[in-house]
Design a protein around this nucleic acid. Sequence first.
DNA 1: CCTACCGATCGGTAGG
DNA 2: CCTACCGATCGGTAGG
Lengths: 202, 202
Amino acid sequence: MDVRHQILTHATRLFAEQGYDGTSVQEIADAVGIRKPSLLYHFRSKDALRENVLAEMLAHWNAVLPGLLLKASTEERFDATMRALSEFFIEDPDRARLFLRETLDRPEQMQGMLARFVQPWVELLGGQLERAKRQGLVRPDVDPQAYAVEVITMAVAGTAVIDTLQTILPDDPARGNTRTRHARELIRVARSSLYTENEGDN
Amino acid sequence: MDVRHQILTHATRLFAEQGYDGTSVQEIADAVGIRKPSLLYHFRSKDALRENVLAEMLAHWNAVLPGLLLKASTEERFDATMRALSEFFIEDPDRARLFLRETLDRPEQMQGMLARFVQPWVELLGGQLERAKRQGLVRPDVDPQAYAVEVITMAVAGTAVIDTLQTILPDDPARGNTRTRHARELIRVARSSLYTENEGDN
DNA sequence: CCTACCGATCGGTAGG
DNA sequence: CCTACCGATCGGTAGG
C-alpha cells in the first residue's frame, strides 16, 4: 500500500550495502516491484531520495538516542546506557553502514549534520565528565569530547563492519558470538578507560 | 616518467575520496594527464586497477606494520608502539579511508585479506595478552581478540573520518589540534582499558 | 600513448 | 503508476 515507505526501506538497505553511487534507481525500483519512472514520480530525483532516506534515519535517531544519552550521567547507569547504545546500532547494522558511508562520501554535508545533532550531546556529556573529574570519579587525563568521539567511532564503525570480522573474532562457546564479543568489549573498553579505579567497581 | 605509478597514486586518492563506483576511469586519466584508452593499456580494466591499488597498499602495510606490532609486547613499549601505529594511519588518512570503503563495498573479499594479513597478528597479540593476564599485568576481563578489533577499528575509522570531526573536536590551545586530540585519546583509551592499575603507572 | 568508436546503462522527462 | 524515449556518460575495444 504505502509505496513511498517501501521505496525508502529498499533504498536504505541498498545504499547501505552497495553505496549511493553503486546503486541505480532501476535497482531500487526492481526491489520495490515498480518501474523506474514510477519511483521518480514519488521522489523527483535520486538525490532527493537520498535526502529522504537520511532524514528518516535522523528522525529515528532523534526519537531514541536523546533519552538514552540523558541516562548516562552517573556511573551506576553507565553500563546500562552503553549497552542500550550498542544494541541500538547492532539491531540494524545498515544504519551504521549508511552513516559511515555518508561521512566518507559527503564530509561537508555530514559536518553540518554533526554540528546540529551530535555536537549538543557531546557538549552535554563533556560538561558532565568535567564535573565528575573535579569530584575524582573520572580519570584526570580524560579529554571529554575526544573520549566521546572515540566511543561513538567504535560503536558505529564496529557495528558497520562486524559481520566481516567473523574470521578474526569467531563465535566462541566461552565468550559468545561475534556480535556479543564486540558489544561486550566495546562497553568494557569505554567504561574502564573512563572511571578511576576503586574497590567498589564491578 | 613512471606512468603506472602516477596512475596508481591518483587512483588511490580518488577511490579513497569518492569511492570506486564514484570515480570514473576518465577522471583518473584526466588527473594523470593522459587519455582513457592509454590508462586502459597499462591496466586492462578498472577492476584490475582497483586490485593493483589494493596490492600496493597492502605491500606497504606488510613492510611497516609487523615491525611495529612486534614491539608491543611489554607495557613499557605499549605507548610508543600505539603512537607509531596511530601516526602510521594519520600520516595518510586516504589509506584508512580506502581500507574502510573496501570493507563496506566488498566484505567477502576483505574477509579473505583479513584472514591472511591481520588474523596472524591478532592471534600473536592475543597469546601475549593471555600470558600477561596470568601474570596479573592485564585486566582479567579482557577479551584479547575483541580488544584488538576495537582498537584497530578506533584507529582506522577514527583516522578516516577525523577531518569531518573538526566541529565536534575543535582545535584547542590547551589540548592541541583535532588530529592530536584524537591520537592522544585513542592511545589513552587503549592503554587504560588494558592494564591493571598500580602505583608505577604514568 | 593516441583517435575514433562501441553497446550498455545511467538519471531523468513527456505524455498519458 | 505506466510506455516510450532522451542525451550523457559509463567501461572497454580496434587499429594505428
